Amino acid sequence: MSLAPAAAPRASVNASSAADEQTGRSLARLFGEIRPDWHSAWAWDNYESTILTLARTYGLRSVCEIGGGRDPLFTAGQATERGIDLIVNDIDAGELALTPAGLKTARFDIAGDLSEPDVAPGGYDMMISRMVFEHIDGVEQAWRNVHALLAPGGVALAFFPTLWAPVFALNHVLPEKASRAIVHALFPARRDGGSDPKFPALYDWCRGNPRILTPMLNRAGFRDIHIQPFWGHGYFDRMPGLKQLDHGFNALAAKTGWSLVTTYAYVVVRKERG
């Protein structure tokens, strides 16, 4: 009986130490445990689970999806089931009007001056985006704004295509009209008015090389940074021969770590806890 009071504090200290160990884990260490595959198919298939792993590891709940618009990661019900308080952001009021019912929205330009009424500095535990940053004019300012909008200890993950993968380099140099026609030929569902319209791609700071991105992210205020590169894509899936040739090229690039021709990247950053 006399030992009972002493046991409870020791258990509490151990639980607290375990929580500190979990939240103090670096992003590089966490991704070392996740062990992503080299091919971009892994990035698409595991985008949601990666976000949930980050949220669980670092105790994140309030999540802002940048550019979520008409196609956010979760419905209101799914967000609730996963313990996520999701706020959908977009610069376009028309896109936000298409956001599924029941989700909160916030209209502001992530690369702007953050003067809009919907802006909440330090108000988000996590900020996520998929296929958005390649369309932003002023990505370095966007990352500064992400830093300002994150709460201490908050995490951001941006998933985007990278230069100079040949398929995206072509998209970058072609006139927008020609690029749009090619994408619509390969993916008819993406014609304007469909569920996934094509927006002009600028590729500002869209690279898969940590040596290029890290100094810029440091200037934005981040120190805990992880760049996860991927190779390969699905643009040639309906082109036998070319598909296999392209796969071989990307497999070799991944094996040698040739970051110049990555096709996609996860850029993950964490704000210092203060």
Rank of each mutant, 00 (worst) to 15 (best):
V167N: 05
D192W: 08
D204C: 07
F168W: 14
E176K: 10
F160E: 01
A178R: 12
L170I: 08
E176N: 05
K198P: 04
C206E: 02
A201D: 01
P188N: 12
V155A: 09
T162N: 12
W205S: 03
H184T: 06
A185L: 15
G208H: 06
P175Y: 02
A201P: 00
L170C: 13
V183M: 13
A169I: 01
A189E: 15
G194H: 05
S195D: 13
I182E: 03
L170S: 12
P166F: 05
W205R: 15
A178V: 15
A181V: 07
H172T: 09
V173C: 09
F187K: 06
L186F: 13
A169R: 13
R190N: 11
P197E: 04
A201L: 01
R207P: 03
G154I: 03
K177Y: 09
F168H: 14
P161M: 09
H184E: 14
N171H: 14
P188L: 12
K177F: 01
P188D: 09
P166Q: 12
A181L: 13
L163H: 08
A178E: 11
G208Q: 03
V183F: 00
L186V: 08
S195N: 13
K198W: 15
A201W: 01
A165K: 02
P188A: 06
W164D: 07
F159Q: 03
G193Q: 08
A165T: 04
C206R: 01
A156Q: 02
N171I: 01
G208N: 07
D204R: 05
E176D: 15
R207Q: 09
P166N: 10
L186A: 14
W205P: 01
A169T: 13
P200T: 06
G193N: 13
W205T: 07
A169Q: 14
S195F: 06
L174R: 07
I182R: 09
W164K: 08
A156F: 03
E176G: 00
F159T: 02
P166A: 12
H184Y: 15
W205N: 09
R190L: 06
A201C: 10
P200E: 06
R207Y: 14
A158F: 11
A158N: 07
N171Y: 08
P161D: 08
L170M: 11
F187T: 10
Y203V: 02
P188K: 14
A158V: 11
A189D: 15
A178P: 00
L170N: 10
R207I: 05
F159N: 11
S195Q: 11
T162I: 09
K198N: 10
R191M: 04
D196G: 04
A189I: 05
I182T: 02
H172C: 10
R190C: 11
R191V: 12
L174N: 10
